[in-house]
């Protein structure tokens, strides 16, 4: 597993667990959870600076951009124009050309608006962004995103923050077989077994936030997720046995009385 590196748009990443930085109690907890998770890609959102209370600390004072790959997102954008605007602002704020592109279609499900997503991806790829799109578990849309120039795709496991786990493993499997770029399963993971399953299916990485930040002990859950992703990846590489309806004895009959 030592040479099992994930490479996206020429960037070599060591961890296959990516984490969000929302919903934590404070920045100290955020930092501790990220350290426990072993993640080296962390997502952040772009928002107005609080100009009335400047005592508020900056998240990036806690996350060294030299140590982590900071992946800004366009969270909260419900149309192409907003998503493109936020992506440009994220780049102007000066970390890199990386953007986790979200164009949402509906407030209740937070499902991606894949039509808007394709349109926004086209614009941003043309502007030189490295676009990692948050998409539905739809293989055709995933392929179209790759055709546009996205160096990875991020299909959901279940609605954001739902903790429902992998709702459609067969579609995810089809995406993994069809699409020739890294697949990062994003959103909907609830606990360690969900993350392990995503990796066993062949995902290249898993991105999560709520499953860790919302756990009763976020730091312990972050550690659990680290091992789950690692175990799932090992199992995938090892090649599982096929499922069979009937038993196959594992002890020899020879030598029995």
């Amino acid at each position: 597993m030592q040479n099992d590196r994930l490479i996206i748009a020429g960037r070599e990443l060591t961890s296959r667990l990516w984490v969000g930085t929302g919903k934590y109690k404070d920045f100290t907890e955020t930092k501790k959870a990220i350290e426990a998770s072993g993640a080296d890609v962390v997502t952040v959102a772009v928002r107005r600076v609080n100009i009335t209370d400047r005592s508020k600390e900056n998240l990036l004072d806690y996350l060294d951009p030299k140590k982590y790959t900071i992946l800004p997102n366009t969270a909260g954008c419900y149309n192409v124009e907003d998503a493109v605007r936020y992506a440009r602002l994220a780049r102007a704020a000066g970390v890199s050309d990386l953007i986790k592109l979200e164009v949402l279609g509906d407030e209740r499900t937070l499902f991606p608006d894949t039509v808007g997503l394709l349109e926004a991806a086209k614009i941003l790829v043309k502007e030189g962004f490295i676009v990692l799109p948050y998409t539905n578990d739809d293989p055709i849309v995933a392929q179209k995103l790759v055709d546009i120039g996205c160096p990875a795709v991020m299909p959901l496991a279940a609605p954001i923050g739902s903790g429902l786990g992998i709702r459609n493993p067969y579609n995810l499997k089809i995406i993994m077989e069809m699409v020739r770029v890294p697949i990062i399963v994003d959103a909907g993971v609830g606990t360690a077994s969900d993350a392990a399953l995503a990796m066993e299916l062949g995902a290249d990485a898993v991105l999560m936030n709520t499953a860790i930040a919302g756990a009763q002990d976020p730091i312990a859950m972050a550690e659990a997720m680290k091992y789950a992703v690692y175990a799932g990846r090992l199992a995938y590489k090892a090649g599982r046995i096929p499922r069979k309806l009937y038993a196959t004895a594992s002890s020899p009959i020879e030598g029995m009385l």
Binding site: V19, G20, T21, G22, K23, Y24, F27, T30, T43, V44, A45, V46, R47, R48, V49, N58, L59, L60, I70, P72, N73, A75, G76, L89, A90, A93, V95, E102, L104, L110, Y134, I160, G161, D186, A187, L207, M208, N209, T210, A213
Partner: peptide, 10 residues
């Protein structure tokens, strides 16, 4: 604008 904690939209 600046970066704040965030995973996905919710």
């Amino acid at each position: 604008l600046s970066f704040i904690g965030g995973g996905a939209s919710a």
